[in-house]
């Protein structure tokens, strides 16, 4: 194994981590502030990717399709919040899970009805095509660097929003005491709608960014949703900082695990077995990580201490 390979894999881990952050940031805010388990978050990811692909087919512009992804996901998010989710805030978690699970089925069928069951096409713009030499002899995909860059911008934006703005104060206050901030005259339902919209928009953006290098197909949101839930549990529910650190942690552990474990095993057994055992352990790794963190810190890395 060479240093170049290791550095490339570290970058891959970072890129995956930032991608997961876009998904989990919205999820953790919605869960933390509104107390809502939103299984339909993966559907916004899918909606983002499909509206990006549709816009791309029509205008043939990547940047326009990126814009379409988060704006359409935000619009759908706001509509869903105002019509359905709003009725769930006072219900228990089981009702929320049932309704948002139904939303997954609904959106998957709707998308299939509109676009068909075959994957759609979405491609990287010319300027981000190919790879770039970042250090001596280390090449890395321009598009993946772009994803890291977008992740950094969004993270900065969210930290600014939560930490420095009036809205951020309301969000943080909402996490601790919902009744008190509405008693103080904050329009809590407007805040919830806004928050839900932001979460959906981030998921939609993630869908378009990832759909571009993977495949845009029905059901693409669910695998990543599971990881997003793992992350908000590791990071501590409601904490953006926790979500960021947990995302990067999960991204790096998953990427390096998939790559290093078979490599280590190869020294003790034959390559074929090493590969199959290694990939099996590799896919368990993040769940093992979650278990260890929960044993050491039951509320997650940055979760509030339960009283």
């Amino acid at each position: 194994m060479t240093a170049e390979l290791l550095i490339e894999q570290l970058l891959n881990g970072l890129q995956f981590g930032f991608m997961l952050f876009l998904m989990s940031a919205g999820l953790t805010l919605i869960f933390g502030v509104m107390g809502l388990i939103n299984l339909a978050h993966g559907s916004f990811y899918m909606i983002g990717a499909f509206s990006a692909a549709a816009t791309f087919a029509f205008f043939n512009s990547f940047w326009l399709s990126l814009f379409a992804s988060f704006s359409s996901a935000a619009v759908v998010g706001v509509i869903v919040e105002k019509t359905i989710i709003r009725k769930l805030y006072n219900r228990d978690h089981l009702d929320q899970v049932l309704v948002t699970f139904a939303l997954i089925l609904f959106f998957s069928e709707l998308i299939r009805w509109i676009f068909g069951a075959f994957p759609l096409y979405l491609d990287v713009p010319k300027i981000l095509n190919g790879s770039i030499e970042i250090f001596d002899g280390i090449y890395y995909s321009k598009y993946r660097l772009f994803i890291i860059f977008v992740g950094l911008i969004i993270a900065t934006f969210l930290f600014f929003l939560i930490g420095k703005t009036n809205l951020g104060i309301q969000i943080r206050a909402g996490q601790y005491d919902r009744e008190m901030i509405s008693a103080l005259g904050v329009n809590i339902s407007k805040l919830y709608t806004l928050l839900f919209g932001i979460g959906a928009a981030l998921a939609g953006l993630a869908g378009a960014l990832i759909g571009t290098i993977q495949s845009v197909e029905v059901g693409m949101g669910e695998p990543i949703l599971i990881l997003a839930f793992v992350i908000i549990v590791i990071g501590g529910i409601g904490s953006i900082k926790g979500a960021l650190i947990a995302s990067l942690l999960v991204g790096l552990v998953d990427t390096l695990g998939r790559f290093l474990i078979p490599w280590v095993l190869q020294t003790i057994t034959n390559p074929s077995d090493a590969m199959s055992i290694g990939s099996a352990i590799g896919s368990m790794l993040i769940y093992i990580l979650m278990a260890i963190i929960l044993i050491l810190r039951p509320t997650g890395l940055y979760g509030k201490i339960l009283s």
Binding site: L5, E8, Q9, N12, Q15, F16, Y139, S141, R144, I210, I213, Q214, S215, M220, P223, T255, R258, F259
Partner: peptide, 11 residues
């Protein structure tokens, strides 16, 4: 659906 890890190994 993401093969960055594998592609790096191919390289």
């Amino acid at each position: 659906t993401d093969y960055a890890v594998e592609i790096a190994q191919i390289r």
